[in-house]
């Protein structure tokens, strides 16, 4: 079966380096114009399609609390601190072939792909990012999950020496995320190693991160050091922090508001006006089937 993740977004939409440098200049101008002239530009932008977000924005506007809670922090504190090589991932739990495996050996057997996905943050902003990576399913299969494996739990590195943010107990470190096994095996789910055709930068979750484009961004866990197959639903960090506001599924859903802000629309970074948020972030065709019969309001 041919899988076409996001038919509207193709490989050749990935911007080449010269053009993205150009975009940096555009962004600087757009930011100024957007704030001063706002209106005219905004009306145009509101109808624009999914142009990849400039590299500059993708790599300097990050939520990565292990490196500080402001969005500007990770790009400043992560490079030079986060040691991404050598990198190993411990795989255990309900599978026939657990073990600790080096990053190279984890990725090498699988064909690396470029995929452009929309990223929708739970905070109400979004980007379009050209990722590079491998389908998670291809990686997970090799560990031969057994019949008890219903979920997959992921863990981020938690090293005080490398991550200054860990000194502040904002969340219960290490950061943990989880997917149902069928979500993890969905062809859209990507284990990313790069973006814009290059290796991931530390602030984006180098050297290995999850990308689940139909879920809010916090599900796409960064700098993964642990993968565990479990029988029970994992308790992800944000749900643990505030179960009223963050659920396990966290599918992008304009009809289910976050208690503190609307999820009906979003601000695409680089645009002035808000645009409507799409059900499953626009990936309903590929993933809606996973949730047939599930009350998405109760299972937010």
């Amino acid at each position: 079966m041919l899988i076409k993740p996001a038919a509207d977004l193709r490989d050749n939409d990935v911007t080449d380096h010269a053009l993205y440098l150009d975009r940096r200049r555009f962004l600087a101008g757009a930011v100024a114009a957007g704030s001063v002239l706002g209106v005219g530009r905004g009306l145009r932008a509101a109808t624009a399609d999914d142009t990849p977000t400039p590299f500059e924005a993708v790599t300097t506007y990050n939520n990565y609390y292990e490196f500080g809670t402001s969005k500007e922090d990770p790009a400043v504190t992560a490079p030079g601190r986060l040691k991404t090589a050598p990198w190993t991932v411990a795989v255990d739990g309900e599978c026939a072939k657990p073990g600790t495996i080096g990053l190279e050996d984890l990725i090498k057997p699988v064909q690396v792909e470029d995929r452009i996905y929309r990223l929708r943050c739970v905070e109400g902003w979004s980007m379009v990012i050209p990722w590079r990576g491998v389908p998670l399913s291809e990686v997970l299969k090799r560990f031969e999950p057994n019949s008890k494996a219903k979920y997959v739990e992921f863990t981020t590195l938690a090293d005080r020496a490398q991550m200054p943010g860990l000194r502040i107990p904002v969340l219960d470190w290490p950061y943990v995320e989880g997917l149902r096994l069928d979500e993890a095996m969905n062809p859209l789910t990507l284990l990313a190693t790069g973006l814009y055709g290059k290796d991931l930068l530390p602030q984006n979750g180098a050297p290995l991160r999850l990308v689940v484009p139909w879920k809010y961004g916090f599900k796409s866990i960064k700098s993964i050091v642990g993968i565990r197959f479990t029988e029970n639903q994992p308790l992800n960090s944000w749900q643990k922090y505030n179960p009223r506001e963050y659920g396990f599924y966290s599918n992008v859903n304009p009809q289910v508001d976050h208690p503190r802000w609307s999820q009906a629309n979003e601000r695409r970074i680089g645009e002035f006006r808000r645009r409507p948020t799409l059900m499953f972030n626009g990936y309903g065709e590929q993933v809606a089937g996973l949730y047939a019969g599930l009350d998405l309001k109760a299972n937010f």
Partner: peptide
Amino acid sequence: QAAYGSLGINPVETL
């Protein structure tokens, strides 16, 4: 900042 500098990646939020 709005005229000559930058209000950052998400200017509306910054403002």
